[in-house]
Structure formats: C-alpha cells, structure tokens
C-alpha cells in the first residue's frame, strides 16, 4: 500500500486501505454497495484533514474542486 503524505497518518491509512480493498473486490464488485469501512475512514480522514491544513494544501484543493462539477456531470450519470 502507498504511504500517506503525512507520516503520522500512515497506520490509520493502512487500516482503512486494507478494509477498502477487501470490500471493493469481495463486496462492491459483486453488487453489494453497503459501505463497511466508514469508521476507519473517518479516523484516517481526521488525521489527514489536519495534515492538509498544516501544509496549506486545503486551499489548493478547494480551488480544484470548483472545476469538479463538470466531470461529475459527465461521469456520475448512467451511460
């Protein structure tokens, strides 16, 4: 698994990634869309959010997100 940009979040990220990958291959791809890793994600996310803020990346992300509506409109709908 790849690392987090914040070393302090690495272990939380690894726990979440492991859960997600298992869910993705064993459940999601077989039609079960019920999220099973939400708790692990929220712990990792808490750590990550702080790291993004400390590094000033959060503002860059806000800017980029403004343009994400276009791709959402194109790819979130059914073909």
């Amino acid at each position: 698994m790849s690392a987090s940009l914040a070393p302090a979040c690495n272990s939380l990220k690894e726990k979440y990634d492991t859960c997600f990958l298992r869910w993705y291959s064993e459940k999601y791809l077989r039609g079960n869309t019920q999220d099973e890793c939400a708790e692990l994600f929220s712990e990792y996310k808490k750590c990550l959010t702080k790291a993004l803020k400390d590094r000033g990346i959060d503002t860059m992300l806000d800017e980029a997100r403004k343009n994400s509506r276009e791709s959402d409109a194109e790819h979130l709908k059914k073909p």
């Binding site: 790849s2 940009l5 979040c9 997600f20 990792y44 990550l48 979130l76």
Partner: peptide
C-alpha cells in the same frame, strides 16, 4: 516519483 496517495473522500452514489 509518486511518494504518497491519500483518499480525500469516497461515496457510492
């Protein structure tokens, strides 16, 4: 050249 990959959000529509 890729040193880290972080998930920011994830959701099933």
């Amino acid at each position: 050249h890729v040193v880290a990959v972080d998930t920011l959000s994830r959701k099933v529509e």
